[in-house]
């Protein structure tokens, strides 16, 4: 994975596959960079949750490897960080990835606003909540609010996608510390 936004898209896809109706993405860069992805999907039992960091474990039948979580662990640990997964059946899953921001190997953020909007546009049945906090302030976006505002206008219209991406990017730029 080239950047953090790709990891966010990837882990959020796990949530969507677990039939989540709400996915919360928290980016907190006040101290160490913490990315939290929380869903209300099916969740996993203890045994499965332990095995997801194994690259040769997957719940799919199309292939025999499952690299999303292992790649995230690899990138986080390369910066001296870690990944924690909390999950229980029926309760949903929370994945917390910690990265040391100052570390040479910390991947760039990438296009996080674009990722959030694409997730929201491609999954109309899922409420995508995004919160980004820095030392300077906080910004949050909620796809359900955006849909309510848009009314009959679809969120996946290219002009709307571009405008929402710009809106999120503008707000993130404002709270960026460096």
């Amino acid at each position: 994975m080239q950047d953090l936004s790709a990891h966010i898209m990837d882990i959020a896809q796990n949530s969507i596959r677990a039939n989540a109706t709400r996915v919360e993405i928290d980016v907190d860069e006040r101290d160490t960079l913490a990315i939290t992805i929380r869903d209300n999907g099916e969740g996993m039992n203890e045994e499965t949750a332990k095995r997801v960091t194994d690259p040769f474990f997957t719940s799919r039948a199309t292939r025999r490897v499952g690299l999303g979580i292992p790649l995230l662990v690899q990138n986080a640990e390369a910066t001296g960080g870690s990944v924690t997964i909390r999950s229980s059946p029926g309760q949903g899953t929370t994945v917390v990835a910690l990265f040391t921001r100052s570390h040479l190997d910390c991947p760039p953020a990438g296009d996080i606003p674009g990722t959030i909007v694409l997730l929201a546009a491609a999954n109309p049945g899922v409420e995508v909540r995004y919160r980004h906090a820095t030392g300077k302030g906080e910004y949050s976006f909620n796809s359900t609010e955006a849909r309510e505002f848009l009314g009959e206008v679809p969120l996946d219209d290219p002009e709307i996608v571009a405008a929402l991406r710009e809106m999120i990017a503008e707000n993130i730029k404002e709270i960026q510390t460096q």
Binding site: A6, L67, T115
Partner: peptide, 24 residues
Amino acid sequence: AMATCGIAAGSKETMNYFIDHLDK
């Protein structure tokens, strides 16, 4: 296709391209 393999290969750019250019 947006699984780990797709994302790592740049499917996000592909999807953005389709959204932008189909309409155009």
